[in-house]
Design a protein around this nucleic acid. Structure first.
Length: 304
DNA sequence: GTCCGGAAAC
DNA sequence: GTTTCAGGAC
């Protein structure tokens, strides 16, 4: 009698990879708060917003406070944009906070306060792109869809294709690769979480810990760990950029409970006044900061 | 393709 | 001091 147990019998390399990953994940997984069993789809969506370009260690405490304060989309939508920006704190890329607030409003008003299930619908939400839509569909709703972030792309590039990193090939191609590896059943979320976890903790960009990797077969290791084929793009710096200036300006406004006069903002960046003005203007354009009738500045939606 | 934060690891 | 990151919008 044939018993079909996807992912639990080493029929070939692919099911073997899945099997090894899931077993390893069972004991190596980090106990992250958004992985608890009673976490809602909305709270998972909040975690994915916060985790965009931001390490786990910095997200965890903010996320815990956030979901306790605003447990549902409607509760988040009812908060003022300014309070949302303050709660976001120094997580970085504050446009994400604004988009999360807009996303909450759209779900509350157009989706009956329920996070959509379908990837196509999720993709219509502000701040939700290819990765976040599929992460929610998979982790919140147990759908067997490929969840491909930078870490997953790197693992696939190495283990399957024998390359040091994802390189140029499109994320679409990587999604097809992951789809081929995935179990098409209720174990998909565990598989995807395991793949991401491997990329985050073992198969890391800088110094991969191949000595503790659970995969028996890895094309990159088999090929002798060849270096990246293309030179890595010159790293974006941070010191002295508009982003740093924006961060300093926004920090003043987050801290203040009342609108701030121009002079109080000017002092945070004295080395380049043109750059400072440009940064402030971009915050106004982004809808993160607004100017009061008397010419002072405040976080957007401060009065609401 | 470029822009958008911030902190921890080198 | 410099590099390194769990994306998305334009």
């Amino acid at each position: 009698m044939a018993i079909i147990v996807p992912c639990l019998s080493p029929r070939n390399d692919m099911s073997s990879i899945c099997d090894e990953l899931v077993v390893w994940y069972g004991h190596a997984r980090r106990d992250l708060p958004w992985r608890a069993p009673d976490v809602t789809a909305w709270q998972i969506l909040v975690s994915e917003f916060m985790l965009q370009q931001t390490p786990v260690a910095r997200v965890a405490p903010i996320w815990l406070d956030w979901v306790a304060r605003w447990p549902t989309p409607s509760a988040t939508a009812e908060a003022s944009a300014a309070d949302v920006l303050r709660a976001w704190g120094k997580l970085g890329y504050p446009r994400r906070a604004k988009r999360l607030h807009e996303c909450a409003t759209m779900i509350a008003t157009e989706h009956d306060d329920q996070v959509p299930h379908d990837v196509e619908v999720l993709l219509t939400l502000p701040g939700v792109g290819s990765y976040t839509a599929r992460a929610v569909a998979c982790f919140a709703y147990q759908q067997s869809v490929p969840v491909v972030d930078t870490n997953v792309r790197r693992v696939v590039a190495r283990a399957i294709h024998g390359r040091a990193d994802a390189g140029n090939p499109s994320a679409t191609r990587d999604m097809a690769d992951v789809l081929a590896l995935m179990p098409d059943d209720e174990t998909a979320p565990v598989f995807s979480a395991a793949l991401m976890e491997l990329g985050a903790t073992v198969c890391t960009a800088r110094s991969p810990k191949c000595g503790v990797c659970p995969l028996r077969v890895c094309a990159w290791r088999a090929a002798g760990h060849p270096p990246p084929a293309i030179a890595p793009r010159p790293a974006q710096r941070f010191a002295g950029t508009d982003r740093q200036v924006r961060g300093k300006l926004l920090d003043v406004l987050r801290t203040s409970t009342s609108p701030v006069p121009r002079e109080q903002l000017d002092v945070v960046w004295l080395t380049d006044t043109a750059q400072r003005d440009r940064a402030l203007d971009s915050l106004l354009v982004d809808g993160l900061v607004e100017q009061t009738a008397d010419g002072r500045f405040a976080l957007c939606g401060e009065a609401n």
